[in-house]
Design a protein around this nucleic acid. Structure first.
Lengths: 188, 188
DNA sequence: AGACACATGTAAAGCGTTACATGATTCT
DNA sequence: AGAATCATGTAACGCTTTACATGTGTCT
């Protein structure tokens, strides 16, 4: 029941779709999985080394001849078996840490204006993410209607989109409640 | 710009509402902040020690006389200043790790039934949490209508509730999409 | 020329969970 | 009597981020 790192499965899952460099894996996680997962270079490169030692991936191409240093990795059959095995296992990690919620929960320890400011900043940050997620989701939906199936990406991007939209609505509603109860009614 | 641990602020924020034991702080985080934050004993007790050394909290009462060992901590003025300072600072941590999304995203590497099973299990886990969050939120709303103001707790619990409801709807919709596209249409 | 993105990798430091150790009280 | 909960605390281990080091290619 030990909760080991999931990094290797992220790497394996990505490589099962297409061969990639370590850098490419990192960028892909940022682009497609950022709503619900994140990894750093400091974890990806050592993981890649370890996965190769274990025979789960191989170096497909090492472009070192004068040009830019680049190592493209590819998944092996053993790697695919290992990934499939993990996909069947029960889910262990459901963890989220949102500092905004903590600060809002402690609102009574400061001025309402401080909390409203955090909510405003959150709203503008999240509006960008939401817009981005919407575009990505529309794109994937269109690919499907053109016969190019990315159903699982479409579903996860839908989750990201709905998450951002829900959070935006929550932040706006919360702002309204605080303003109504704590700011406009100060002359109570 | 270093992202230090937030544990001490959680502790301070909770103690600013009421004096507590370390155990009580842990339980309170589980009860009221679990939707968006979590802490372990292994972090709370050392943090309490450190906060006392720094003069941000004091031992209010040490019930050690024959009875059950218990240390109640209370926040100091210096602690309140420290907390208020942090509440003004910009938000640094917005991190979530949902293994379910990773597994769904890698759906093509396994059978659709495997993904549907994970979604089903997620739905039953989340239904419980959602129900619980709804009750907590209703309770806080009622307290307000009776003149007992817990606005900030009400807002954060609303966030938790909406999060679970959104996730439930997403999981159900996703299941439908997978069944329609991947399972019923196998005879394509 | 300078900024930025591509690309790989290591080391240090700190974060955080889990397991362990210990014991009292309350509930069934 | 036994299980669950209350209660405190430490140690080990592993996870994860951040900073650093280094260099190429592309765009303005």
């Amino acid at each position: 029941m030990r909760k080991g790192s999931k990094t290797k499965y992220l790497v394996l899952g990505i490589l099962d779709k297409d061969s990639q460099t370590g850098y490419g894996i990192k960028k892909l996680i940022e682009r497609e999985h950022a709503h619900f997962w994140q990894e750093s270079f400091g974890q990806i490169y050592p993981t890649l080394k370890k996965l190769e030692e274990d025979g789960f991936i191989v170096k497909l191409e090492e472009d070192n001849t004068g040009g830019r240093k680049q190592i493209i990795y590819s998944i092996t059959d053993a790697g695919r078996v290992h990934l499939k095995q993990w996909l069947i296992e029960d889910i262990e990690v459901e963890r989220l840490r949102y500092e905004l919620f903590v600060k809002v929960a402690f609102g009574d320890s400061t001025e309402p204006e401080v909390i409203v400011k955090h909510l405003d900043e959150f709203i503008s940050r999240t509006e960008k993410k939401s817009k981005h997620a919407k575009e990505a989701h529309e794109h994937l939906k269109q690919l499907y209607s053109h016969g190019d199936d990315h159903t699982y990406n479409e579903i996860t991007s839908l989750g990201g989109l709905r998450f951002y939209e829900m959070m935006l609505k929550w932040a706006r509603d919360s702002k309204d409640i605080i303003q109504e109860r704590k700011i406009n009614n100060k002359n109570k």
